[in-house]
């Protein structure tokens, strides 16, 4: 279908706009991994601990940065002259914003997988190397057992992961919406950034209020945690759709670049 091809092309260029930072992240992770393996090979526990620590911090930082970069790219696309490149193409604003959201989502999921794999590898290496942590090894294997036996558990984890991803995507679409809204009446004035941020905060507060209203207290769900997460995800999905449509509509009808 023509439309799919167009979306893929748009996404291709969204990736390329953000390709350089991915390279930096990969290089840095690579360096940390070298440190880790060096520590393993030379039996340097301190080095291993430091490397794992860096990795943990870095993972959080990188995932946060990915969301931020997608938002920054969008803001730049509205502000700089290179926006002509994008908005002169025969694409609806719905395709353009959609491609941005999809490429951001994909990058986050991929990053998540990459980091998970790295942690798994490192964890595996450690377990194999240090039989002394047999206790830990037993515990992990027991957990894995339960994990695979009880499918309900799997749904729990899946729904948490799902919600984290959806939550990140909603952060991005709400940010898009905030930036677009402030651009509509402020164009490129100096304090547009601050106004965007305020709108963003307001929308998040609104979201939390609505969620509380619909779902009630988190503690009510202690028996059925996944229900809460699924409910939350549905509300988040609604928020994503609303802010996505709103952003695209404003871009189409109201915003001049």
């Amino acid at each position: 279908m023509q439309w799919v091809k167009k979306m893929l092309k748009l996404m291709k260029y969204e990736f390329r706009k953000q390709a350089f930072s991915k390279l930096i992240i990969l290089i840095l992770v690579g360096l940390i991994e070298i440190l880790f393996f060096f520590g393993v090979v030379t039996d340097n526990e301190e080095m291993i601990a430091v490397a794992m620590g860096f990795l943990a911090i870095f993972t959080g930082g990188a995932l946060f940065f990915l969301a931020f970069e997608s938002i920054l790219t969008y803001s730049n696309d509205l502000k700089q002259k290179s926006s002509y490149m994008l908005f002169l193409t025969p694409n609806t604003s719905y395709s353009i914003v959609g491609a941005k959201v999809l490429s951001a989502g994909l990058q986050i999921i991929l990053a998540g997988i990459v980091f998970f794999v790295i942690f798994a590898i490192n964890g595996g290496v450690l377990i194999v190397k240090y039989d002394a942590i047999a206790e830990v090894k037993k515990m992990i294997l027991q957990l894995a057992d339960q994990f695979f036996q009880l499918k309900i558990r799997f749904t729990d984890i899946a729904s948490v992961v799902g919600q984290v991803i959806i939550s990140w995507i909603s952060t991005i679409t709400v940010a898009f919406f905030s930036i677009t809204l402030s651009t509509t009446f402020l164009a490129n004035k100096k304090f547009k950034g601050m106004v965007s941020f305020i709108i963003f905060i307001v929308l998040n507060v609104l979201y939390n209020k609505i969620t509380d209203l619909i779902l009630g207290d988190v503690t009510k769900y202690s028996a059925n945690v996944s229900t809460y997460f699924i409910g939350n995800s549905i509300i988040l999905l609604a928020a994503i759709i609303l802010t996505y449509m709103g952003t695209a509509w404003m871009l189409d009808k109201k915003v001049s670049v």
Partner: peptide, 21 residues
């Protein structure tokens, strides 16, 4: 003005507008 017109209209602005990369 919309997707259909953009397919057939070629605009060149005064300022440079290509992506840096």
């Amino acid at each position: 003005i919309g997707v259909e017109s953009k397919k057939r209209v070629a605009y060149m602005s005064t300022e440079p507008f290509f992506y840096n990369f």
